[in-house]
């Protein structure tokens, strides 16, 4: 239970995927214009994150590590994640059409999403066991969702704000993102004080 809390806390708040590790920024900036898009993308990311961990974790520890090919992990994971997403898309399309409608268009985007690959590599780096790796993936997905929803709120306010023309669009969005990110620095040290 304690490990679970620590992993969840660290993945969701302290080492938030988007706001502290700066992974998955492209989808973070691209799909936060409306809550509907943010929701679809977040659900898809959580889902793919869990499935991809379940696939890549055994591949690393059962295939790559025994023959000392740990250094191939990046290449192999990219390949496997792309394949997993393709397979998932086909299966969901056939078996759960409503789910496909909800997150179908976001699935292909995830194929090359650095957030997924990043979490897979972190799971290996931290030498988690399988259940902890799954938890960390779940936490990362929830953290991503949190960041998406927070930033969607910020962007919706910014839509109505009177922004000087030279700052309109990406510049103001990036500045807002960095301010949101700075606010997450406040969580640093929480774990040491809570559980240390």
């Amino acid at each position: 239970m304690k490990t679970f809390l620590i992993i969840m806390l660290s993945m969701v708040l302290i080492d938030n995927l988007v706001l502290s590790r700066f992974l998955g920024i492209c989808s973070f900036l691209g799909l936060t214009k409306s809550l509907k898009n943010a929701m679809g993308m977040s659900i898809a990311v959580i889902f793919v994150m869990l499935v991809a961990t379940a696939v890549t974790y055994p591949i690393y520890w059962n295939i790559l590590e025994p023959v000392n090919l740990g250094y191939l992990q990046t290449v192999v994971f990219i390949l496997v994640i792309a394949a997993v997403v393709q397979v998932l898309e086909a299966i969901i399309r056939k078996t759960f059409p409503p789910l496909y409608e909800a997150m179908g268009i976001y699935l292909p985007l995830i194929t090359t999403n650095c957030a997924i690959l990043g979490v897979m590599l972190i799971n290996i780096q931290e030498i988690y066991n399988f259940s902890n790796a799954m938890m960390s993936s779940l936490g990362a997905g929830v953290g991503y969702t949190l960041a998406m929803f927070l930033f969607t709120g910020v962007r919706e306010k910014m839509e109505k704000a009177d922004i000087p023309p030279f700052m309109e669009g990406l510049p103001s969005t990036l500045m807002a993102a960095s301010i949101v990110s700075v606010s997450f620095m406040g969580f640093k040290g929480v774990i040491e004080n809570l559980f240390g």
Binding site: I59, V76, Q86, A90, R93
Partner: peptide, 23 residues
């Protein structure tokens, strides 16, 4: 060999899935 093997397995799975789950 390991890389090619994994790629081959992925490819075969994709082909099978697309055949059985084609819409």
């Amino acid at each position: 060999a390991v890389g090619a093997g994994i790629a081959l397995v992925c490819g075969v799975i994709i082909i099978l899935v697309f055949r059985f789950f084609s819409v």
